Amino acid sequence: MKIAVYPGSFDPITNGHLDIIKRSAKIFDKLVVAVLNNPNKKPIFNLDERVEMIKEATKDLNNVKIDYFSGLLIDYMNNINANIIVKGLRAISDFEYEFQMALMNRKLNENIETIFMMTNSEYSYLSSSLIKEVYKFGGSIEGLVPKIVVEKLQEKL
């Protein structure tokens, strides 16, 4: 069974993330969307809220599981017997950082492969940070995030 992990902070999940999730779910037997719990970051949504939003947004995808982790991604992957990391790339600027991470993960565990997937050009400019900023200043984020995210941002902000 090919188990892949799509890691990220997902604060909040965007339609760009969903694009990668849906396309990855077609390729792998099981896709685990793993939400990073990083105590050094100050997310707008807590871990449970992020997991809840992703579960709602992916509820129609039978082979997608939502989970969370802290610490090294490689340790998490070993715990769930996964050996493929899926990373979405929006632009060339993403590649340099993600390539460095892929090489480090490979150094930590030579059995781990990283797959880079280009996002749909429709979402290539999207980031969670940009979504939060646009929303805070009153801009429309309709069509850029799942409906649940709009609802949760309304509650939060």
Rank of each mutant, 00 (worst) to 15 (best):
N79P: 03
K136Y: 02
I13Q: 06
V145Q: 01
K41E: 06
M117V: 05
D48M: 11
N38G: 05
V145I: 14
F28A: 11
I74N: 02
S124E: 15
E52G: 03
E113S: 15
E142A: 09
E49A: 13
E49K: 12
Y68M: 08
V5I: 12
N105R: 05
K22I: 06
M117L: 13
D29I: 04
Y68G: 00
E151Q: 14
T114S: 08
R23V: 02
S128Q: 03
I84H: 03
S93Q: 12
N120G: 00
K65W: 00
I66Y: 02
S24C: 07
I20H: 04
R50G: 01
E151F: 14
Y123I: 00
L36N: 09
E56V: 12
A102Y: 03
L31S: 08
S121T: 14
E110L: 14
K30Q: 12
A91P: 05
N46D: 13
D48K: 11
N109H: 10
V64D: 07
Y135F: 13
F28C: 01
N40L: 13
E110Y: 15
D75G: 04
N40Y: 14
M104W: 06
I27Q: 11
S93Y: 09
A82C: 08
V33Q: 01
K30M: 10
D29N: 14
L130F: 08
D11Q: 07
D29R: 11
F99H: 12
N109Y: 09
M118Y: 06
L126P: 00
G88R: 00
Y68D: 11
I27T: 15
H17Q: 06
A25P: 04
K41Y: 07
L36W: 06
L36T: 06
Q100V: 07
M77L: 12
I84F: 15
I131K: 07
T119M: 01
R90T: 03
N40D: 13
R23E: 12
P12L: 01
T58F: 02
I54E: 05
A91R: 14
Q154N: 15
L73I: 07
N37P: 02
M118H: 05
N63D: 02
F28M: 11
I3L: 14
M1T: 15
V32M: 00
E110D: 12
N111H: 11
D94R: 09
N111S: 14
V51R: 02
F99Q: 07
H17V: 00
I112Y: 10
